[in-house]
Design a protein around this nucleic acid. Structure first.
Lengths: 167, 167
DNA sequence: AAGAAATAATTAAAGGTTAAACCTTTGAAC
DNA sequence: GTTCAAAGGTTTAACCTTTAATTATTTCTT
């Protein structure tokens, strides 16, 4: 057997891609299951989150934050509005804008469920120790550098603990 | 300033989770865009792929392969069948089963687009050198061990080059 | 063999998602 | 001022996805 599997060298790029997508989907599904218990989808939760962090913002900014299309945000905000979790207001200086804001109910809901959400993420990442986390962060940064925008996050990826300035 | 940000230690677990999900979604979207050019969704492509690898199989097995629900597979196969890319046949020994198989057209399509698909993946992973790929693979395995099943893959994660035995 | 439990697939309802077409508003060019 | 291009939102069509209910078939139990 002269060539055995020489012409099928383990394609590490393909393998790594597969494992990356698979792992991401599995963890995301796991974490999202917790949100579903509260009756929220991942997109709905992330929308509440960005509103909590930034106050009333136009739908365009929500789309940027979620990395989704404008049409999608219209639908997600429709559903949140129907539930009474957010409000819509026409922009005053620029009447093209629709400012979305958390309602009191929406803010209460977010505040109530956020800690458990973070805990679920920590539990999902628990198999990695500190060097493992460092290694993962650095190789992912190499693979797909973080954009320098202040608010840039996907549906499931908006879990940056809001920095509480104590001093 | 006695406490500065001591009580907000950089939460590496959360950061790593965010980056993992974000990167996975971005790469998946990028690769899927290539499939869309051929008129295929990621789920449709992955279904063609598993049929190419395994021949006629029940929908249940497709669901396992895609890590999706049975109802979802019914819909995806509906659409592929309408396009004439796959065929359905009732199982003979077990009449509960619906065996799905590639049609000649479906196989031709798959064979035509698969190489470019793999190339897109390699291009997406190009920022990583061999040590980077090794590091990513090993830390992901630590985080989410691969199940020992022979066919286990998500929509976007079924890109294992079919091993061509030459000897 | 009969009844019960489990399995495979379908269907419907609810949400998410995108791309494309459309409307309104804005801002700039003339 | 009128025109025109760009930008923000909405809508529609098509697909994905899940959950729950339903149907058909098989398998297990007794």
């Amino acid at each position: 057997m002269p060539k055995s599997n020489k012409n099928v060298p383990q394609d590490f790029a393909i393998s790594a891609y597969v494992k990356l997508i698979r792992t991401g989907e599995a963890l995301h599904a796991e974490v999202s299951r917790g949100l579903a218990l509260e009756g929220l989808t991942a997109s709905q939760f992330s929308t509440l989150k960005v509103l909590k962090l930034r106050g009333a913002i136009p739908q365009k900014d929500i789309a940027t934050y979620l990395l989704k299309t404008g049409g999608n945000v219209t639908v997600v905000v429709d559903n949140l509005e129907r539930e009474g979790l957010v409000t819509r207001t026409r922009g005053v200086d620029d009447r093209r804008l629709v400012l979305v804001a958390l309602s009191p109910t929406g803010e209460q809901l977010f505040d109530r469920i956020y800690p458990a959400h973070l805990q679920r993420i920590r539990r999902a990442m628990a198999p990695l120790d500190q060097p493992g986390l460092d290694s993962l962060l650095s190789v992912l940064e190499e693979l797909h550098p973080t954009i320098a925008e202040p608010l840039c996050s996907t549906v499931a990826a908006d879990e940056v603990e809001p920095t509480q300035q104590t001093g």
